[in-house]
C-alpha cells in the first residue's frame, strides 16, 4: 500500500515537473515586461495582470484597467495591438 502510494507520489511529482501551464503566463517578469512595453507604446493599461502566450514572442496581455493588448514581434519590431 505504502509502496503504491510512493509510486503515485513519484509519478505526480514527475508530472508536476514536466507539465507546463497550458497558456496563461503569470511569470511576474513577463507581466512586468509587457507592462513596460505597453507603457512605452503610450497605451493606457496601468499594469498587466495576466498574459496568455499565443506563440513565440506573442502574448495577449490583460491590463488592470480592463484593456487587452496583443504584444508581438514582427520584422524585429515590437507591435502592441489593442484587442
Amino acid at each position: 500500500m505504502s509502496r503504491r502510494k510512493l509510486v503515485l507520489a513519484a509519478l505526480l511529482s514527475t508530472l508536476a515537473l514536466v507539465a507546463r501551464p497550458a497558456r496563461a503566463q503569470e511569470d511576474p517578469a513577463v507581466l512586468k515586461d509587457l507592462t513596460s512595453v505597453i507603457a512605452l507604446q503610450g497605451q493606457p493599461c496601468g499594469q498587466v495582470v495576466s498574459a496568455a502566450k499565443q506563440g513565440d514572442n506573442d502574448y495577449i496581455a490583460s491590463c488592470q484597467d480592463g484593456n487587452r493588448y496583443r504584444v508581438f514581434v514582427r520584422d524585429g519590431r515590437v507591435v502592441v495591438q489593442k484587442q
Binding site: S36, V37, V73, V78
Partner: peptide, 13 residues
C-alpha cells in the same frame, strides 16, 4: 533589469 520585449522596443526607438 528589463525584459526582452522592453529591450527590443527600446532598440526600435
Amino acid at each position: 533589469a528589463i525584459g526582452l520585449f522592453t529591450k527590443l522596443k527600446l532598440k526600435n526607438e
